[in-house]
Amino acid sequence: MKYAYYPGCSLESSAKEYDLSIRACCQYAGVDLIEVPDWICCGASSAHATSHLLSIALPAKTLVQTEKMGLHQIIAPCIACLTRLKVADMEMEEHGDLKKDVETVLESTYKGSVRVRNILDVFLNDVGLEKIEKTVTTPLTGLKVACYYGCLLTRPPHIAQFDDVENPHSMDDLMRAIGAETVDWSFKTDCCGVSMSLAETDVALELTNKVLEGARDAGADCVAVACPLCQSNLDLRQKAIGNKFGVFYDMPILYFSQLMGLAFGATTTDVGLEKVIVNPFPVLGAI
């Protein structure tokens, strides 16, 4: 299984452990990732707020490059990148005029032959739960995980075309396949407010607090995420939340791929576990 791989800006620095753990999991699962050479930023989340044409042209460049690589599927682990790539592909297919404008801007043509794939979808449907279960060497028995999907994994449904929009379970299925327990909770698809995190931090903290409170009340040991923006927002500001609301959650926020990698037998360094801010080792201690 060969896929073009688009890490995106976050996975180069603040979410390095997402990149490491995705690559590790893919190796175990037999998924070949070929990085798009010299890829550029997709423009999320600012291009679409300021120029529609720019918001399509930036990710379209990556789609054109994917075609040039001779590949027809591209994986973008960051959900913001994923959405922008999908929107670009779909809008160019629907609107011929827009496609022409984008091609003028890029000075190259796009055939429209690329499928933009969600990484959870690839693990669930291309690799399959059966193979994932077979690949597990260290099941995460006894670990209680709150799977957090955030906004864009399932929304808007006509773009995401993935899972149940209000009560998704794909990540829960994956976590159970590697031996973990998943908790039922009400904040799976609530927004963490990350786009306010830098510019209006206080507002973001209100939203982040609710998500962490929900996970704690459901009895979770840790939260699993599939988006670098959710991860950094939930992980990095727990001290600030404690200072503002008087509750220190100490809740580890891990990428689903870090947990999967560990279950497949990868070392903690392979999946970048040391890079997470809230120390996950105590809850993973028994594993």
Binding site: C9, S10, E12, S13, S14, D38, W39, I40, C41, G43, S45, S46, A47, A49, T50, L54, L58, M196, L198, A199, E200
Partner: peptide, 21 residues
């Protein structure tokens, strides 16, 4: 602040091709 956020974000992308966090 939000307007500033978008401006600075895109300035970084235009300057380097990627966001320099």
């Amino acid at each position: 602040s939000i307007e500033a956020f978008h401006k600075v974000f895109l300035r970084s992308v235009e300057a380097y091709g990627r966001l320099y966090e």
